[in-house]
């Protein structure tokens, strides 16, 4: 294996949905390669194909054309090598928090005692130890997302695919979760694709920010963020503010185009 091989390589990806002979082009000739240990944020207007992109990588939706490779191997049906955190909640409501987190461990064949111990560790990581035996229905929105995050960590995939995981949360909870995710990520530097509408979040978490165009989704800009120091006043630093303006302008253009497209 050459040292330079990317972890994820997408070439000329096309996706067209056809429903009742009406077709919608969601993704258009998209190419992207992601190295191990990158945290790639994806921003773009609503409906531009971000979720679709993650679903295709996850193996849930077939691509219309194009090639996708993970560590050099073509991507197949859904599997634990690509861990997905969906835009909508996907915890099992009939299982408690800890049982939900232990599920991927059970699928890997860990014996009961071991997986319970490990699941407890992951819950601890997201500060939910006290809620281990509580059902998702009894947890707040932010807590549910933390359980989902712990489940994703327990799955321990090669690449994490996160689709607006904090989208439905209030800004304070969201900021706390961003900090938690950031500090957890720094320990293992697990490769991640992170879709978000929140430009601050994209810059704060990402080592790279990709801006999608309005539908059909293509890459409009690919911005690397070399400085990974997120301590203290990063959110007030000049570098951060400059990035914010840059990404904001790029996204704004596309949001306007997307709106024109919708109204057309």
């Amino acid at each position: 294996m050459p040292a330079t091989m990317p972890l994820l390589e997408v070439t000329d990806l096309d996706k067209t949905f056809t429903v009742d002979s009406r077709s919608v082009r969601a993704i258009d000739h998209l190419s992207l390669s992601i190295d191990e240990h990158e945290f790639v944020s994806i921003v773009g207007p609503s409906g531009c194909g971000k979720s679709t992109f993650l679903h295709i990588i996850g193996g849930f939706e077939p691509a219309t054309a194009g090639e996708l490779r993970l560590s050099g191997r073509p991507i197949g049906p859904p599997g634990p090598d690509r861990g997905m955190m969906f835009q909508e909640l996907s915890l099992f409501p009939w299982l408690t928090a800890i049982e939900n987190v232990a599920w991927p461990l059970e699928m890997k064949g860990l014996p009961k005692r071991e997986r319970t111990a490990k699941a407890a560790e992951y819950l601890d990581l997201v500060h939910l130890s006290r809620f281990a035996d509580v059902y998702p229905g009894q947890l707040s929105g932010g807590m549910k997302q933390r359980v989902a995050l712990a489940r994703l960590f327990a799955l321990d995939p090669e690449i994490m695919l996160m689709d607006e995981p904090f989208g439905a949360l209030d800004s304070q909870t969201r900021e706390l979760l961003q900090e938690e995710l950031q500090s957890i990520w720094r320990r293992a530097r697990k490769t991640a694709l992170f879709v978000t509408h929140d430009i601050d979040e994209a810059i704060y978490l990402g080592t790279r920010v990709i801006v999608f165009t309005a539908r059909p989704g293509r890459i409009k800009a690919d911005i690397r963020i070399p400085n990974l120091d997120r301590s203290g006043d990063y959110r007030k630093s000049r570098e951060y503010l400059a990035l914010r303006v840059e990404v904001w302008d790029l996204v704004r253009d596309e949001v306007l185009k997307a709106r024109a497209l919708e109204e057309a």
Binding site: P78, G79, M107, L155
Partner: peptide
């Protein structure tokens, strides 16, 4: 049944019977 739950299960490597 919510498609997302089925997707999540497949994502975690569960076989069909499971």
């Amino acid at each position: 049944v919510d498609k997302l739950l089925l997707w999540a299960a497949r994502n975690m490597g569960a076989p069909s019977w499971t």
